[in-house]
């Protein structure tokens, strides 16, 4: 039934990768090249060729994932192979270098390869940890349901404030109008709420309205609880209390939504490193191969 890509077919690709890594290491230890180990020996060429072919094949995962008619295995099987064989590259590529590092295109290719693999490992980690966190945070709600409930709360709140008048009405309505969620990548990943609100500020004897931050409706709640504490009219107090209950619920939903956006963002953001780095790796790899043959 349900089974992770990591344990696909009893971890078949893990064993394939392990055999690949062990045999490369054994060959490296057994091999006695003339001079120091180098990419130019027969073993170096072999490891380099295998690694280069692997890199090209690994990038094909992006193609297979979108080839919905393909019957060449399942995407899950491909991802399993992608992860384990990709991981084995770390050893293969490094052995291919013979540990000769320097300030050159060859080491740049190796470095990019390492970065791609490390970002991939991070991806595996988030894919392992985050789905459950998202589920827990969602608590049976979907984003659509949350938005619907927020809209519902806004509607109810705007009816209630009609009976309250200033300044509650302006604050509540402005909080609805200046509500903001999501935004750019940074805001999504930090989970910051940029919602704002208009509140009355008194400067000396003059009163004027200013716009201030209202993260997760906290400022509005502060203002409303202030009004309630000063209220002497029981009818007004009842309405304020009802309003506070509604806004508290909205605040809870906002926190849930912000966390959801943040978690979802974190689960996806590594791909924005993994893929461009892969493209850079492919280009550098090409330069590495051409330059090696050119100077040979």
């Amino acid at each position: 039934m349900h089974g992770s890509f990591l344990s696909h077919r009893g971890g078949f690709w893990f064993w394939v990768a392990l055999v690949l890594v062990l045999s490369s290491v054994l060959a490296y230890v057994w091999h006695e090249p003339l001079g120091q180990p180098n990419g130019g020996t027969w073993l170096g060429y072999t490891l380099g060729t295998v690694a280069a072919l692997l890199i090209v094949w690994l990038t094909f995962f992006g193609v297979r994932k979108r080839a919905y008619y393909s019957r060449l295995g399942t995407v899950k099987g491909w991802l399993s192979a992608h992860v384990y064989l990709g991981g084995s590259l770390l050893v293969l590529g490094t052995l291919h270098s013979g540990f000769q590092f320097g300030l050159n295109i060859h080491t740049l290719a190796w470095l990019l390869m390492v970065l791609v693999i490390v970002s991939g490992f991070y991806g595996v980690w988030v894919y392992w940890r985050y789905p459950e966190r998202i589920t827990r945070n969602r608590d049976g709600m979907t984003r659509q349901l949350i938005f619907r409930e927020v809209a519902d709360i806004d509607r109810k709140a705007s009816v209630i404030v009609e009976g309250l008048g200033s300044p509650a009405d302006r604050m509540v309505i402005s909080a609805i109008q200046l509500f903001s969620i999501g935004g750019g990548a940074w805001h999504q990943l930090t989970g910051r709420d940029r919602s704002r609100i208009m509140v009355a500020a008194s400067k000396g004897s003059a009163k004027r309205w200013v716009q201030v931050a209202n993260p997760t409706q906290q400022r509005l709640l502060d203002e409303l609880t202030g009004l309630l504490s000063r209220s002497a009219d029981p009818q007004e107090a009842a309405l304020l209390q009802e309003l506070i209950d509604l806004i508290s619920r909205k605040a809870k939903l906002m926190r849930q939504l912000l966390a959801d956006i943040r978690l979802q963002g974190l689960m996806e953001v590594w791909l924005y490193c993994h893929i461009p780095l892969t493209m850079a790796l492919l280009a550098t790899l090409m330069a590495h191969i051409v330059s090696v043959f050119f100077y040979w």
Partner: peptide
């Protein structure tokens, strides 16, 4: 489609 439901075959994580 030969090979069965596309949704299941396209799921990368086995969910």
């Amino acid at each position: 489609l030969k090979g069965g439901p596309a949704c299941v075959r396209a799921c990368p994580t086995g969910a």
